[in-house]
Write a protein that binds this DNA or RNA. Structure first.
Lengths: 222, 222
DNA sequence: TGTTATTTTTAGACTAACCTAAATTTATTA
DNA sequence: TAATAAATTTAGGTTAGTCTAAAAATAACA
């Protein structure tokens, strides 16, 4: 039972959608993220259901089966390893690698993935701070908190973001807020909840509440 | 004007066929190497002709136009750079990388190719000794001689092979005849034209005429 | 040169993935 | 709860790439 390029994209989309928004994923959501039409999604859902990769009942939304989830995690593993490679070895910016990884994640060769993993030194997080699933598809579940939820005095390492638009990525670049950077919350201004961060070299960075919401801090990587 | 995965494979096949056997390439040859049927080939030839990537007249065989050749060379450049990467960085055997490179060569990103080239140190030859076209598609034309055409006393570096079957690749592996190895022809036995080679560390290797014919020596890489 | 054999092309059909437009089901709200 | 709105599915059609079987062109040879 082989999965096509397109099937893999659907499985990945469903995985991400069901991680974000609770449980059942609906047709329109999928159509949205895959840039396609609801009718096409329905066709594919029937097909994936026939292969037992999703549980699907007409009009009732959809969720991945265990084997569907396994496949999705394999794709995500590949995606994140490739992103790591592109940034660490080929010096791409972390905001430029997504589309390329989207192509590379479909290369079929378990051998390649594992060798790449070794070559890269078994990285645990991709350049956006998202955890890289291991060979068996296990994903390291880390507790991340949004910066907006921190209080003065809290500290941690920037480890992820909730928004992947290139405008936001460029904003982070400008503000010099990179994944892996250690920060301390110096103050939260009560008026508009602007957060004042202090970095290791003593610099101060002010960010709006809107931005703070989308930046995640990790306690695990310390 | 974008070229699909499949179109690229046809262009590459035509390129290789016209390099090997003189000029005009015929439908059946293409069908053979692409593992498809002549009828399918005809369909595609019409399509490629419409895009001005080949010169095609019914029943008369086919050849690449300049733009078709440019595209073919870009694919070949990618293929060979990926093979180099797989062997040099990920420690694959040079006889295992072909199928993988066949997938990777279709990744679309000029930026990626050039960064990879730089990362690898601008290699001139792939692990099979075939020259890697540069950015502009120029291929280094080197004079290669088959070992069977050498006389006692001649020396050079093993730089290519004319036969790519995995049985032959494994034979070379067993004999410890690797691309890049410096060899000297010590003697050619008149009886059956067995060639006795001497390697840099003083070892002797006997090869049959059949094998010698398929091994190429390069004067350029010295 | 005429006849057979081979190669190539056409004709017609299939599949995967997509689309639009219409029908149906579920959700919302007056 | 009936009526409207939104979401989803069905029906029918398109395109790229493939196939088989039959027809047409070229090549081989007696």
């Amino acid at each position: 039972m082989d999965t096509s390029f397109t099937e893999e994209n659907y499985l990945k989309a469903i995985y991400h959608l069901s991680a974000d928004e609770s449980k059942q994923v609906n047709t329109n959501q999928i159509a949205m993220v895959l840039n396609t039409k609801a009718a096409s999604v329905t066709d594919m859902l029937k097909k994936l259901s026939g292969k037992n990769l999703i549980n699907y009942e007409r009009y009732q939304g959809v969720e991945l089966t265990d084997s569907g989830k396994q496949i999705a995690l394999k794709i995500i593993r590949k995606h994140r390893l490739w992103e790591y490679f592109l940034v660490e070895k080929l010096a791409f910016g972390w905001d430029e690698v997504h589309d390329l990884a989207e192509q590379l994640e479909h290369i079929q060769s378990p051998e390649l993935v594992d060798r790449m993993d070794k070559f890269l030194g078994f990285p645990k997080y991709d350049p956006h701070g998202d955890p890289i699933p291991d060979q068996s598809g296990t994903i390291k579940c880390v507790e991340m908190k949004s910066v907006a939820a921190l209080n003065a005095g809290d500290a941690g390492i920037i480890s992820g973001i909730k928004e992947h638009s290139s405008s936001f990525l460029q904003y982070l670049e400008k503000m010099d807020l990179k994944i892996g950077k250690k920060i301390l919350v110096e103050e939260v201004i009560p008026f508009d909840e602007t957060v004042i961060l202090r970095t290791e070299n003593g610099g101060k960075i002010n960010i709006s509440k809107a931005a703070a919401k989308h930046i995640l801090i990790n306690y695990e990587q310390l």
